[in-house]
Each structure stands twice: as structure tokens, then as C-alpha cells.
Simulated scan of single mutants.
Amino acid sequence: MFTDTPFANAIFTMFSNIKIKLCLRGFTAPGSCKAYIFGGCAMHLHTNIRISSDLDSQMDFCRSMKEKAIGLIESISPVDFLDNKHGPSLLVYDSHFNPALAPMHEDYDINAIGIETNTPSPLWVYLISKCDLAISKLGRFGDMDQEDIYALFRAGLSIDEFRTKAMEAADYAVGQSGLPSKIEYAISMYKELMGEL
């Protein structure tokens, strides 16, 4: 996992800022807010192949604190950072991100990797697994999404695990037609790129 790059530091700075906002709103119980990292930020932490201009994150607030969280996401400030390739850069929180718009395995939260968990902090941060990240890329399945899947394979994602879990997700994905063909296309194209066909 790539957690010590300028971009990774910007991601964690943003979560530190969110933690402060939670404390100011009365969030005191450890893990009363759980954040799951998706999208380009998750790609960076898993592979370091690129950066992103926005943080895609699902934030789950404990039921008793949901009222205190109203407006919090919209108040998250951007984070400036200096990227080695792109120079001065800005990371913003995507307040419109919704993981339900992409195919997702039902156990993505169970399979997520704890980055900052089991601490006294009210904010616990998780990174979705390589497999669940690859599955989420099957929805839009544009050129960059396909490249991301190949990069996750190169970073150690098992083709068998991807096929099995992606097919499970396809069984109950709503409004996601053609997932089995996308799954097999991604696998065959990766094998072709790697000279395995």
C-alpha cells in the first residue's frame, strides 16, 4: 500500500480535518463515523499509478449522530499538496459520490482494509479492497476504468477472486446490464496484454 506519497498525505490530511469537524459537532464515540475510500484515491493507495482531483468516500454515521452530521460533508475544505509530477495540486471532497451507482459486492465493507481503525478517534478510515475496487470499475467501464482493473491485477489482484466476486455482484446488481461480458472482457484483455493468450 502506498501511504507515504504527497497525494496519500493529502488524503490523510483531509480525513484529519474531517475528524476535527466531527469532534466539534460532538462525535466522541470511537468509530462513530466510518469512511470508506473509493475511486482514484483508492487506486493511488493500492497502486500509485495516478492521482485524483477528488476524494470519493462513503461516510457512514452511527444512527444516533446522523442529525449532527447534516451539512458536514459540504463543509469539507480542499487540501493543497505538491505532486512530484503535476506540481501544485488540489484535492477536493466529492460530496456527490454514491457507491450505489456502481456495481458493488455486498461484503465490500467487511473486506475493506482498516487504515485508521480501533483508535479513540470518532473517525475510522477504511480502504476498499483491490477486488471490490475493480468490481466498482465495471459500471462505467471506460478506458481509464479498464486500465485501473489491469493495474489492480498487476498489483496482486487474483483473476480468480475477481471473476468469482464480480459474478456474485452481478447476480444482484440493479441497473447494471452486461456485467458478465465486461468481467470476461477485462480478464481476456489483461491476459492478452500480458501475453498469456
Rank of each mutant, 00 (worst) to 15 (best):
I70H: 14
G31N: 02
L179W: 00
G39T: 05
S121D: 03
Q146Y: 06
L133C: 06
T13W: 00
P78C: 06
F12D: 04
T164G: 01
T13P: 01
I11R: 03
G26T: 09
P99Y: 02
E116P: 02
E147Y: 10
G87N: 10
D143G: 13
G26R: 06
N84K: 11
S64G: 10
M14F: 08
E161L: 14
S188A: 13
Q176Y: 04
M167F: 03
E192W: 11
N48F: 10
D148H: 12
Y36W: 12
P30A: 07
T3P: 03
N84L: 11
L157A: 07
K66R: 15
S95N: 13
P78Q: 09
A69N: 09
F141Q: 07
Q58N: 11
D148I: 05
G40W: 02
A10N: 00
Q58C: 12
R63I: 15
H105P: 06
R154P: 01
S77M: 10
V174R: 15
L152N: 02
F153Y: 08
L101T: 15
A186L: 14
G114S: 12
L90E: 10
S52N: 15
K19I: 02
Y150G: 09
R25F: 00
P122A: 07
S53R: 15
L101D: 14
T117I: 15
K21D: 08
L197A: 11
L193R: 15
F12A: 00
C41Y: 03
A29P: 04
F27L: 04
F162H: 04
P78I: 05
E161A: 13
I73T: 13
A170R: 03
K165F: 05
N98L: 12
S32W: 01
Y172C: 05
R163K: 14
L22W: 02
L24P: 00
D4M: 10
F97G: 01
F153C: 07
W124G: 02
I20Q: 15
A170G: 08
P30H: 04
S77K: 12
P78V: 09
R154L: 10
A35E: 01
L179K: 05
H86Y: 08
D54N: 14
M59K: 06
G71L: 09
Q176P: 11
F7A: 07
P180N: 02
D56A: 01
F27I: 00
L90M: 11
K21Q: 14
P6L: 08
L45N: 06
V174N: 13
I159N: 11
